[in-house]
Amino acid sequence: MLNCKQVATLASDYLDNNTSLRWQIRLHLLMCANCRRFIRHLQITRDVGARMAINEPGADAEAVWNKVQTRIKKEAQPDQE
């Protein structure tokens, strides 16, 4: 019989269909409201994450491109234009 900590550890594998302990987990979930809530929240988190608009500070394309160009010129052989 799995305990709650084991179920919490396996929760993503369960949601992603990546565990062979699926039925043991289901058995635990039948009896444990806390773990049901935990897995439900994890699933919501996964859904929210999947649909998040990621706002990373955008790369400074200009600066990166300048560095890349410098490298390209450095690597270019004299007989290549």
Binding site: C4, K5, Q6, N34, R40, R51
Partner: peptide, 28 residues
């Protein structure tokens, strides 16, 4: 998973907190 949340027998130390909003759409 760091252990603080669980008793030594592996049961939850405290109830998993309730969420008043469970809709991904609303959360987004």
């Amino acid at each position: 998973l760091d252990g603080v949340h669980f008793k030594t027998d592996g049961h939850w130390q405290q109830a998993v907190p309730q969420w008043s909003v469970e809709s991904p759409d609303a959360l987004l």
